[in-house]
Amino acid sequence: MQLYDFPREEVYRAWAQPELLTQWWGPNGFTSTFREFDFREGGFWRFTFHGPNGAEYPNENRFIEIEPGKRIVLEHQGAPEFRLTATFTDIAGRTRVIRQQFNDEKIFEQVKSFCPDANEQNLDRLQAVLDGQRVK
């Protein structure tokens, strides 16, 4: 969870617009190529992460719930299975966001050593995109 010095609508747009999302989604050193971004409930977001070591990691998410400006819920399809809920909460002109839940305790145990740090890197990259441009 992180707090941003930007209005909720701007932070939400950085999640909802693929041209912004591709700039920050992923941990440090990763880039991504979006193959599909069907931003609607039931729609899919398919992309490939390109790791700093040259490896490629196909990813598929399905949008479960979208409440414009307020909340995005998606499920990562395939290993590791998880549900990510991005709730955009206004706190005096600032925005607080994110929650991730794993479906299986064994999977959580496998990823807990690196997942929190990777998520923080991801959210720091979001901060950099927000700092670099006022989201339009």
Rank of each mutant, 00 (worst) to 15 (best):
Q2E: 14
Q2D: 08
Q2R: 14
Q2F: 14
L3W: 01
Y4Q: 09
E9C: 11
E9G: 09
V11Y: 12
Q17K: 10
P18D: 11
L20W: 07
L21M: 15
Q23H: 06
W25D: 06
G26M: 02
G29L: 11
R35S: 14
R35N: 15
D38F: 12
E41F: 03
G42M: 06
G43Q: 11
G43N: 10
G43R: 10
F44G: 01
R46A: 12
R46Y: 05
T48R: 13
H50M: 08
G51W: 07
N53C: 02
A55Y: 03
E56L: 08
E60K: 13
N61A: 10
E67M: 05
K70W: 01
V73T: 12
V73C: 07
V73Y: 01
V73L: 06
L74E: 04
Q77M: 06
G78S: 06
P80V: 03
R83W: 05
R83H: 03
T85Y: 00
T85D: 00
A86Y: 03
A86C: 13
T87G: 05
D90G: 02
I91N: 10
V97C: 07
Q100C: 03
K106P: 00
F108G: 01
K112H: 10
K112L: 02
F114E: 02
C115H: 09
L123K: 07
V129T: 10
V129Q: 05
V129S: 02
L130V: 15
D131I: 00
Q133H: 09
V135P: 13
K136L: 09
